[in-house]
Design a protein around this nucleic acid. Structure first.
Length: 453
RNA sequence: GGCCCUAUCGUCUAACGGUUAGGACGGAGCCUUCUCAAGGCUUAAAUCAGGGUUCGAUUCCCUGUAGGGUCACCA
């Protein structure tokens, strides 16, 4: 069996669309699984819309995703001589002809002499597909003898580059008969086709710009992990037939089977992507996770006193709260991290009142500012007697738990937590205290006592 | 509209022609130290419709319906 050669041929007219990223991924997985090679080709025959900067971004994005190619990039814009040769041959052999036009930009174009036959081909995913090419007419394959169009360029390149398998989006199905016709005209062997279903937007139409983030770089910028994007994209339209959902690239390569790819389109679901990303976050090394979070923090925060000490203790808390690094931005914006670095200020009556536990936690107890202050004083005295070196979440809990049980958990835990954080939602008070340290904890508790009296 | 593709829980999907139609995400409920998060347990939720073929259709065939793709001197 000869070597499998695939290709990924984007046109550099925009960022790498998430759907094209998946097509690239499927090509990569298929190729690696079969120990073949993948050709990377830039389809820039449209000089108007093609831009070098987009080419660079596409290359960079593929690399970020971990999708590697074995040869290229080849640019169609640099291969016009080759296309010209084929064009001449086709005209000589009667497979194409120069046609005078009354409409369009060019007065003379090259048209393909359509034999008007039925074309049947096998699709690895869909089975037999048959078209009557009569409907196509004598379609145009070049603007002029020097200026080839997509279909001609693709077929010539795929032939010359020895492409054996073409895996592309489902929107390429209707291009296939026309390309097969050209293949037959130039004597090229027919590659094996597999048309991958489209990625759908929530309204079930083809995913496009108006549906939000479609460029792969947007996900990178939001702090999604490339391995999670790859994992999620692979699952969109394919699965190994087992219950496994979290994969490394290597596992995907080993298990990928193009014939098990779904026939119907798959809706892009951000919620599930978030879950997949979180699963990959859990698998990250401590150091990598730390760096990922830190890159999202404002410089101002990093210059705070005892930043790295506190930040280190914050890592597990942040880890269980985010699905992707971009959510750290939200934590920063909503002030969810501020209270670790600076004490809450209880200046208004409202914030003072919030130190006392809410009604529903009081059970039958009457709670007043004075009684809450007493509770807080008791906490201060218990904590004060603890050895400095043992100020861990477990030890603090151990020391205070009997008191909390005795008084009613909410009666003790709420004011303690609120005094330390100034927030109605936060990690538990023992964790908070252990992060802040003994001195700061006592200081904040005393501050709260003062505020409510 | 022509041509082509497709059709299982809300979503992603599993099921040699024989299963109580399975899993995951999300939802709901409960539990787990006060709140939040995380975690655990439980639960609701689907074979587009109608005809065939068959002892037996999610599965095979036909029709309908619905959705999508494509119909450029774009790729």
């Amino acid at each position: 069996m000869s070597k499998i050669i695939t290709r990924f041929p984007p046109s550099p007219t925009g960022y790498l669309h998430i759907g094209r990223a998946r097509t690239a991924l499927f090509n990569y997985l298929f190729t690696q699984n079969k120990k073949g090679e993948m050709v990377f080709r830039i389809e820039d025959t449209d000089k108007e819309r093609s831009k070098k900067e987009f080419e660079d971004i596409i290359i960079e994005t593929l690399s970020w995703l971990g999708i590697h190619y074995d040869s290229g990039p080849f640019r169609q814009s640099e291969r016009t001589d080759t296309y010209k040769t084929y064009l001449h041959k086709m005209i000589e052999s009667g497979h194409a002809y120069i046609s005078k036009e009354t409409e369009g930009a060019n007065p003379e174009v090259v048209r393909f002499k359509n034999p008007n036959k039925k074309i049947q081909f096998t699709d690895l995913i869909r089975g037999e597909i048959i078209f009557d090419t009569t409907d196509l007419g004598d379609f145009i394959i070049a603007r002029s003898i020097n200026d080839p169009l997509y279909h001609l360029a693709v077929v010539v390149d795929d032939f010359e580059m020895g492409i054996t398998h073409i895996l592309r989006g489902e929107d390429g199905i209707s291009n296939t008969p026309r390309q097969i016709l050209i293949q037959e005209a130039i004597g090229a062997p027919r590659p094996v086709y597999a048309h991958i279903p489209l990625i759908l937007a929530p309204d079930k139409s083809k995913l496009s710009g108006r549906h939000g983030a479609v460029s792969t770089t947007e996900y990178r910028d939001k702090g999604y992990l490339p391995e999670a994007i790859v994992n999620y994209l692979a699952l969109l339209g394919w699965n190994p037939g087992t219950d496994q959902e979290i994969f490394t690239m290597q596992e995907l390569i080993e298990q990928f089977d193009i014939t098990k790819v779904q026939k119907s389109g798959a809706m892009f679901n951000l919620i599930k992507l978030n879950w997949v990303n979180k699963e990959h976050l859990k698998k990250m090394s401590e150091g990598d996770f730390r760096a990922g979070v830190e890159s999202r923090l404002p410089e101002e925060m990093k210059t705070r006193e005892k930043f790295s000490e506190i930040f280190s203790k914050l890592i597990p808390i942040i880890k269980e709260r985010i699905s992707f690094f971009g959510e750290v931005d939200d934590m920063v914006q909503t002030g969810e991290l501020d209270y670790y670095f600076s004490a809450p200020v209880f200046s208004t009556d409202e914030s003072k009142a919030s130190i006392s536990p809410p009604e529903k936690m009081r059970k039958d107890k009457i709670v007043t500012n004075e009684s809450t202050a007493k509770i807080l004083e008791q906490i201060v005295s218990t904590i004060s007697s603890m050895p400095d070196l043992d100020f861990s979440q477990e030890k603090i809990k151990e020391a205070l738990w009997p008191f909390a049980e005795e008084q009613g958990r909410g009666i003790v835990l709420w004011p303690m937590r609120y005094s330390l954080s100034g927030k109605e939602k936060s990690p538990d008070p023992f964790t908070l205290a252990s992060i802040l340290g003994k001195i700061e904890t006592i200081s904040r508790l005393k501050n709260a006592i003062e505020a409510i009296l």
